[in-house]
Every structure is written in C-alpha cells, then in structure tokens.
Amino acid sequence: MTTTTAGAPPVLVEQVTRRFGDVTALDDVSLRVDAGEIVGLLGPNGAGKTTLLSLLSGLRRPDSGTVRLFGGDPRDPASRTWLGTTPQETGLPETLKVREVVDFVAGHYASPMPRAEVLARFGLEELVDRQTGGLSGGQRRRLAVALSLVGRPRLVLLDEPTTGLDVEARHVLWEALRDYHRDGATVIVTSHYLEEIEALAERVVVVGGGRVLADDRIDRVLDLVALRRMTLTLPGDATSGRSALHGLDGVQDVVDAVPAVAGTRFTLLAADADAAVRALVAARLPFHALEVRGASLEEAFLALTTRGTTGVGAGVPSPEVSR
C-alpha cells in the first residue's frame, strides 16, 4: 500500500522499461509532469504512447523502473482516486443509457461531478436518455471523454481522444478539455495528429521507438514539422551531389542518396522549400524528377533527434530511432 501525497507531482516516471516479448515498448523512459501542466504525447503508432498511459493508469506494471501517480503506485486503486481516463475506441456498454453510464462511473467516486455538469461540459444534455449503442461515433467519443472527468480528477489521461471525429466535434472536445485544465487539472493527451497537440498542449513530449526523443515547448516542435521533404535526381555520384546540395539556401539536411537510372536520387529536408527550389535553379544544377511534400512526423522526429546533438534542448537522450 502506497500513500498518495498532495505535494507529489501528478506523474513521475523514472527509468521505466517495459517489454512485450521481444518488443521493447518503453526503453528507459523518465518523465515528470507537474500539477497544472497540459502535455501532449506525440509519436507514431507503436511508439510507446499507449504503453506509457497503461502504466500510469495502473493497467500494467513496468519491467523495471518506477511509476508514481501523486506519489503513489498507480496499481493501488487508492492512488487512482485523482485519476481520470477514457475508454478506448468506442467501448461503451451498448444497452446502457448515457445517464446510466455516467452514474455508473460516478458511483466509483466519493464526490463525483454532478451528472448535469458532466453532460453540459460536452454538450451531451440532449442525449441523456439515449442508449449508447444508438449514439453516433462522434457522440460516443464525446461521452467517452466526458467519463474521464466524472470523478473530478486532478490528472486526466486521454489516449487519442478525437480519433475519427469531424472538425466541429473535435473543437467541442478541445474546448471542454481546455476548460477543465483552466480549472486547475493536469492533462496528458496522446495523439498522432500534430493539430490536436497544437490545439491543446503547452509542452510536447515526442516518443518514438520506446524512447523520449524530445521534450520541449510546443512552438519549437512546430518549427520542425514545418520541414518539407524534397526528392530529386542529379547526374553523378552521391558524394558530388551531396556537396552541391548541402550549402543551398533553405536546405537543412541531405538525408538519403541512392543510385538511380540517370545518376543519384537524393532526399532532402528543407526548412524553406520555396527558397530551396529557387536556389537549385539559381545554382543551375541539372536536377530532374523533383518532388516536394510535407515531412512526416516521423521524419520531423528524426530531424529533431539528429539536431539534438547540436543542441535543440534538454531532454533529448539519444538520436536512435528504431524505425
């Protein structure tokens, strides 16, 4: 039995490793989240986000390291009285009415949020007498997120809260979460949508391959994702092409060079793709088959970690990415 203390941070994860068979889902992860923060956990599928949340909500235990929730072990139910989570997917009991699901969850807490308030925060008042099986996907999703607040938690964990929602429903949810955060709660939200993290979070923790790749303010991570990925073919070998491309205006990095039919195919990351294209033309490089597209989050993470060695910020443990 552990004791939860008011002074302890909502989340304290120290050197946690968790494996599933041969797969290392979390590899020596440490993370501290203080009261009142709103943190986005960002990373591709399989990066370890959900595993981390399952450790925080007491569903699983780490293979090594410690996980603390307000100073207590999350596997002890008493430590979870300040925790709010949300059912994954649309897993609600289909035959129960909205009113009943809320009351059922409320029955687990000593002083829950009144049902009317829960429903009002998420615009669900009209649906109170409907069975959850009859709700639309978006309505179910809203109810699922609403359930995370029923116990008046001081820490809310949300795993992909708006997956599959339309724009309007997404904004309703975000507003409700921001409201609750303003009331003083700590919020951790995972997503692989940058937009979602941008709308909600002040601090972003990027995970990939089971590691914390970056832990920084939202604006610094956003700069990275403004990167564009350019591919083009130049005659000649990789070495000569690289040296020609490296110094160009707007080009941040040459990340790949593979032999192609008429020379070498290069992949670049550009902070300013327009400038890079103008520079390519100005340098009279005989390029062809140019493609420009937005860098994927994964590429942004990669860039983030390789730049980490040149000082993007604290919390960048290693440039290693598993995929």
């Binding site: 002074g7 501290r32 203080d34 009261a35 009142g36 009285t81 687990h108 000593a110 001081r154 709660a185």
Partner: peptide, 24 residues
C-alpha cells in the same frame, strides 16, 4: 521541465475509496 505552477487545486486529503459493499 521543472517549473511548477501555483494554481494547482488546493491539495486536500486524498479522496477515499468507496466502501467495497457500495461498489459491489
């Protein structure tokens, strides 16, 4: 990130679990 915020909810005693019979 170590900056703590002062506007966290007033730390009170931890809420107790509901009685087992009530949950059952």
């Amino acid at each position: 990130m170590t900056a703590t915020t002062d506007r966290a909810p007033a730390p009170g005693p931890r809420a107790a679990l509901r009685p087992p019979l009530a949950v059952a």
